[in-house]
Design a protein around this nucleic acid. Structure first.
Lengths: 221, 221
DNA sequence: TGTACATCAGTGAACGCGCGTTCACTGATGTAC
DNA sequence: TGTACATCAGTGAACGCGCGTTCACTGATGTAC
């Protein structure tokens, strides 16, 4: 490639974003620096300044893009399931959320640390995040008409569910949007509500009697 | 304070750890540098090297300490509830986990990013983390004998529960111990298991019929 | 179609800064006698 | 109790490095005529 052909890149904004994603996926958000990303993009370290004011601007662009992709993924997962199967749609919603994180760890990392994108200066980020939450709300709303029986649940899966809920709520508070008033609640009440919900669900589902027989071997360990 | 009185600190290891916690709580893990922490500890920038080999050694010490505190908090919460109340104990377990994160955000941040403490060089960290998981497993094991009826659950709380579970599982995979083989499973199976568990529990609990009447106003919005 | 010109994305040198790490040092403390 | 000495935690100077940011510049591209 001749030196001259690198002028008037035309595409640098996208190239910088992709290079940032690669960097963040490989070494974490803290590895993202203007100079390193320029290096990875094959461009002088001052070039990205023509497209992004600073590091936070790159992160904000990635966060907004990521929320858009996540929302699209969840909507597409939901569309693949007939409207009457509300429980499967609810489950698909959670699965899609996780699958997104698995497929796009760099986006997920940036989205999970809203303080890095200086939300006050980039309102689009919060708006894109709110759109995702809206999907979850719709899923739960749809659940109101469902009536299905519980199947067998393995104890270690119950452990994982409980752990995920607790860890997720904690993360959403400590490093996420909950502490910034998203659902506008007291964190202690939230914690007790979620824990109590899981407990109630477990108790009312009749799963406990089955655990005694079906799941016993796994918990022996 | 005379200059001479600062010699033979005697306490610097603890002071450095506390200064690190303050730094991490205020500005995140990436704000922790050897020089900044020394400055905050009121000591020359080379002094901490007599107690910690490098930055990772400080983080490893914090992570191990944090897991110990979390385990102690969970055990103490469990001990406050009579053994027969297994569902309340299960709920208290999740609440204690969250309360820990709320009270000790700096510890929680470090614990949630195991790669920073170079676990290969600091095996005590993983051991301390495993001890916490063991407590959750015990809680679920105890649940096998419980039989209680579900009370009323608010729809937004159900949203929060689902969101927390999905976000928690995703975080535990992307930036946490799950991807390092802790429960030794395929992530896609894990995601489907957790989602299906929640769905099953919701369906089997009979909560759905009640949502139609009790929770309707909240979902209208 | 061909030419002259304006634009502005990318260049490369330069600045000051905080960082990690090393090193010979020094002096407060604890111990042996 | 008093003295001499060994220890080693903390000092402060020094090194090289990558970073963010600025700046005058330059030359490929698009447009007007």
């Amino acid at each position: 490639m001749r030196k001259s052909s690198r002028r008037r890149h035309g595409n640098l904004r996208r190239v910088v974003l992709d290079a940032s994603l690669a960097l963040i996926a490989a070494e974490g958000v803290s590895a993202l620096s203007m100079r390193e990303v320029a290096r990875k993009a094959g461009v002088t370290h001052a070039a990205p300044y023509h497209h992004f004011r600073d590091r936070a601007a790159i992160l904000a662009a990635l966060a907004e893009e990521g929320f858009g992709l996540l929302a699209a993924g969840m909507r597409s997962a939901l569309n693949a399931i007939p409207a009457p199967d509300v429980q499967q749609r609810f489950e698909a919603c959670g699965v899609a959320y996780f699958e997104f994180a698995l497929r796009h760890p760099a986006y997920f990392r940036v989205m999970g640390r809203p303080e890095l994108s200086e939300p006050a200066e980039h309102p689009g980020v919060d708006a894109a995040g709110a759109a995702v939450l809206q999907i979850v709300v719709e899923c739960v709303r749809d659940l109101r008409s469902a009536k299905q029986a519980a199947s067998t649940i393995e104890p270690m899966v119950l452990v994982l569910t409980g752990w995920s809920s607790a860890h997720g709520l904690a993360t959403l508070w400590v490093d996420g949007p909950l502490s910034r008033g998203l659902l506008g609640g007291d964190p202690h009440v939230m914690a007790r509500s979620v824990a109590h919900t899981l407990g109630d669900l477990i108790a009312a589902s009749g799963i406990l009697e089955r655990l005694a027989t079906v799941g016993a071997p796994l918990l022996k360990k």
